[in-house]
Design a binder for these strands. Structure first.
Length: 271
DNA sequence: CCCAAGACCTGGCGGC
DNA sequence: TGCCGCCAGGTCTTGG
């Protein structure tokens, strides 16, 4: 489900209901996520006021004073605001209880997501410390991509999806950004010119920005924290369109697998 | 260091 | 209808 725009959409939906509010604790029904949910989570949170809800890559960071709750949605995770007495379904693993009777409910059928706690600086947490720049921040441009690509044989699409190179670009938006910048996803990263990386970085920026503006991409049942669906799916030009005509030249779009991920591209427009 | 594949999970779909 | 294999928005870990 979630790439950066979906995580950001979730963050924006939840922030007004969390920041400045006090937590009553947490209810953990299934602690076995990607990593175990910390024991004693509820007492760490109980009575604390939420200071901020921010995002680093695809991680949500909930700051509560004595530490930070790190939440990753994995492939199938979502967060929704519900009345705290709403009966839990099979995959509703964790509730963050907000003073006044609401809960932020973490649901994740595949359990690739994570709910972790760090008492120190989040940026020093092992999972965050090695992350590349934010694609919408000032540290990301074609130059950083080109630098990281030098001498590398990996497919440019794999490089783009490497969170140590740049965070937040998952399979959907990698496909879309490569189409927009007319780069063949299979190209060896090190063989691409600085100018073309400039165009790629620009495409990453615009496609993510547009997706955030439209509330993310709704696939299956993604909904933001406030329960509204995203509308970006209608804007996808290649993802999920294998065999259908290219929007630019009408050539049938091709699908190949790169690093076990489906990659769709126009064999004529993308070189 | 670089790269590909495996691992972790569940659910939905197409095909037989 | 039932079963089987494959696919899915992520990313850490392992092995060559």
């Amino acid at each position: 489900m979630p790439e950066l725009p979906e995580v950001e959409t979730t963050r924006r939906g939840l922030a007004p209901h969390l920041v400045g509010h006090r937590l009553d604790g947490a209810s953990v029904r299934q602690p076995r996520l990607r990593w175990p949910v910390p024991e004693g989570l509820s007492s760490l949170l109980a009575g604390r006021r939420v200071e901020h809800l921010t995002r680093r890559g695809k991680y949500l960071l909930l700051g509560v004073g004595n530490g930070t709750l790190l939440i990753h949605l994995g492939m199938s995770g979502s967060l929704q605001l519900v009345p705290a007495d709403t009966p839990a379904q099979r995959h509703d693993h964790v509730d963050l209880l907000v003073e006044g009777g609401t809960a932020v409910r973490f649901t994740d059928p595949r359990r690739f997501g994570a709910v972790l706690w760090t008492a120190g600086a989040p940026s020093e947490h092992p999972l965050l410390a090695q992350l590349g720049p934010e694609p919408l921040g000032p540290a990301f441009d074609g130059g950083t991509l080109w630098q990281r690509a030098r001498g590398r044989q990996v497919a440019v699409k794999a490089l783009l999806m490497d969170s140590h190179v740049v965070v937040g670009v998952g399979n959907i938006y990698a496909n879309e950004a490569l189409f927009r910048s007319r780069i063949d996803p299979r190209r060896a990263a090190g063989s691409i010119s600085a100018l073309r990386f400039q165009r790629l970085a620009e495409a990453v920026r615009t496609v993510l920005t547009e997706a955030i503006e439209q509330g993310g991409t709704t696939l299956r049942d993604f909904v933001a924290g406030d329960g509204r669906p995203g509308y970006f799916q209608q804007q996808l030009q290649v993802y999920g369109r294998a065999g259908r005509p290219c929007v630019r030249c009408a050539t049938a779009l091709r699908e190949v697998r790169l690093g076990q991920r489906s990659s769709v591209f126009c064999p004529r427009c993308q070189r």
